[in-house]
Write a protein that binds this DNA or RNA. Structure first.
Length: 600
RNA sequence: GGCGAGGUAGCUCAAUCGGUAGAGCGGGGGAAUCAUAAUCCCUAGGUUGUGGGUUCGAGUCCCACCCUCGCCA
């Protein structure tokens, strides 16, 4: 069955580097799932981008005496570098600071406004004579709950309570220490109570199919407190201007605007592809399936607020955008992951209690990281990154089971059959049984991948690799060669090579780099996968860089691929490096150390 | 404090509808020598967070409590 698939991946805030927890939560699961969908031949698109706006980027810029734009551009570059090194195969990785995203967001805002889901309300906020209205976290003062003198407007770091910023005692601006005053301001609110019953009816159709964490939590929020109107504009200069006369000096709240990126990135992709209507396949076609890969902290935004925005805009968006009239597709699934801890503690960037992804990849290869992160992927509960466990995962599982299987088969064949895939005699029942079992993996691993049970899929593939190791022990081709039964040994090695060639594909969504390397060693000349290309583009907001997966040359299919006898192999080299146990203490010693994370 | 998700073998995790608690790794013993000392076979081990309840039967359903995490206040 074929249907369009959209892999919508959380947009990282461009104000900090990404760590392994971010990868395990959203980026790696999305990539594994998407590579599988491509191999199935489905019309799949994976999109995301850097979240360029919002207060965290302003904070970072102020802390460093830089500008929000410079901060965003620095981290955006680091993200592009990471996706290329780790092989996160976005069809388009863009950002929210694009002319297209501005237009799409403003059109969606306008559609929601036209449909009567917005209203204006007045509120009081701290106003600094030097800056203007201050975001809550830009105000410091004495906590009215515990008396701590350096509480932020949004939350007190001492007692942990979330605060009402207007109640802070002795407020001062975090930017320049100036004393702010309370002033009245006006903002647009989205009228979520109007959408409550429609959202609830829609979420109920997801019960039993979505992860309990996602659907029960979202329904619980709706039923216990009900949705309240939520502000969607702010008094800032960095962001997307409100598209209404007299409001241009205010910008959209970043929670409202960033999720629109899923839509705007799809539209941008269609424009780059030279087919500006191609995005209809994912957003309008009723059979399309849209998957949102996020961490659990993001559930309300994707299961409640983003669907509410899509419902509120409705066909009015298309009417304003290009004259079409259709309802948007709502999320088909939101396979949110829990959190990855680190050595028993929560990951904390500010305390440098983190394994930074780019730093990791400066010392280790991408596929061992992908393997370990899949093994500990927090699909049902919080899990833990442990360096000793990473070492064992690499040395005792990846190297020992899969890497060793490949190496023993390839090197033995290469030595005894002049570097060619041997010509087999008639396959015995045992040979045939092995191949049947491995070929069944396409259905079994595939079913796990369809259900976004990524760990289970990888475990099944590893089980099959062990089956091939067991087959080799039983058939002992090394003994057959010594007994002058080389023809029989040729059949065994042919069978084992076919099995490995299948496993190469079963592992490919998880371990794309080493599957590609194995593919070449087996003598294939057309690549399994395409490549990730960074491109320079320019619009009214200036030059910028995007990442695109170019899959025109890719040949990987989710089905057994023949490996012809007589095909010339490459001289085999190990797929994986065995790691020195000393890395455990080395890496642990890095944790918690102050690190230079400045952007300049 | 409210809502939600979790708590299962030394470690990381499974367990459809309630039906003999499983796998990998690690530990112990053995075989083999093609392979990065990797592999293969055998084996040890758990009062399923605690205490009650429903049931012929509970990891699973109900109640209370403890702990972890997320969202909200």
């Amino acid at each position: 069955m074929s249907f369009p698939v959209l892999s919508a991946v959380a947009w990282p805030y461009a104000n900090a580097l990404l760590h392994v927890g971010n990868l395990a939560g959203a980026y790696l699961p999305a990539d594994i799932f998407t590579r599988y969908q491509r191999m199935k031949g489905r019309r799949v698109l994976m999109v995301s981008g850097s979240d360029a706006h919002g207060t965290p980027i302003l904070v970072r810029a102020l802390d460093e005496g830089s500008t929000p734009e410079a901060v965003y551009r620095y981290y955006h570059e680091r993200f592009l570098e990471l996706w290329q090194k780790l092989g996160i195969s976005f069809d388009l990785y863009t950002s929210t600071h694009t002319e297209n995203h501005f237009r799409v967001s403003q059109t969606l805002f306008r559609a929601i406004y036209d449909n009567g889901y917005l209203f204006v309300a007045k509120e009081k906020q701290w106003y600094s004579p030097t800056f203007g209205f201050l975001p809550d976290r830009f105000v410091e003062g004495t906590c009215y709950i515990c008396g701590y003198e350096n509480a932020r407007g949004d939350q007190c770091d001492k007692c942990g309570n979330l605060l009402d910023a207007t109640k802070l005692i002795n407020p001062r601006s975090r930017i320049d220490g100036s004393i702010p005053e309370l002033r009245e301001t006006e903002h647009f609110y989205i009228d979520l109570p109007k959408l409550q019953s429609r959202l609830e009816a829609w979420l109920e159709t997801r019960v039993g199919r979505w992860r309990p964490l996602v659907v029960n939590f979202s329904l619980g929020l709706l039923r216990s407190e009900g949705l309240k109107p939520r502000p969607i504009t702010r008094d800032l200069k960095w962001g997307i201007p409100v598209p209404l006369e007299g409001w241009e000096h205010k910008v959209m709240y970043v929670w409202f605007e960033a999720v629109i990126g899923y839509l705007s990135a799809t539209i941008e992709w269609a424009q780059l592809a030279g087919d500006p209507k191609a995005w209809y396949d994912w957003w309008y076609a009723p059979e399309a399936r849209t998957y949102y890969f996020i961490g659990k902290d993001n559930i309300p935004f994707h299961a409640l607020l983003w669907p509410a925005q899509l419902m509120a805009a409705g066909p009015r968006f298309g009417a304003l955008w290009d004259g079409t009239q259709a309802e948007f597709n709502l999320p088909y699934d939101i396979p949110a992951n829990a959190f990855l801890n680190l050595e028993g503690q929560k990951i904390s960037g500010s305390r440098n209690w983190a394994v930074w992804a780019l730093d990791f990849l400066s010392r280790y290869d991408p596929d061992p990281l992908r393997y370990y992160l899949t093994q500990v992927m927090p699909e049902h509960q919080d899990t833990d990154w442990d360096w000793a466990h990473f070492l064992r995962s690499n040395n005792e599982e990846l190297v020992a089971t899969w890497g060793n299987l490949v190496h023993r088969v390839l090197s033995f064949t290469y030595r005894h059959w002049e570097g060619r895939i041997p010509e087999p005699g008639p396959l015995t029942a045992e040979d045939q049984a092995l191949l049947t079992q491995i070929e069944a993996g396409f259905a079994q691993v595939g079913e796990h991948l369809e259900q976004v049970r990524l760990r289970a899929g990888l475990q099944e593939a590893m089980r099959l690799a062990r089956e091939v190791n067991r087959y080799l022990e039983r058939r002992a081709p090394w003994a057959l060669v010594k007994q002058e039964k080389k023809d029989e040994a040729a059949t065994v090695m042919y069978t084992a090579l076919q099995a490995i060639n299948h496993l190469k594909l079963l592992f490919a969504p998880y371990l794309p780099h080493t599957s590609e390397a194995l593919h070449r060693m087996l003598g294939f000349t057309q690549p399994l996968f395409g490549s990730l290309v960074v491109e320079d583009v320019e619009d009214a907001l200036g030059p910028r860089r995007i990442l695109r997966y170019r899959g025109e040359e890719a040949t990987a299919r989710w089905e057994p691929q023949p490996l012809p006898a007589g095909q010339t192999m490459e001289k085999p080299t190990p797929l994986f490096r065995k790691l020195d146990p000393g890395i455990v203490e080395e890496e642990r010693a890095r944790l918690g150390r102050p690190a230079d994370t400045s952007t300049t």
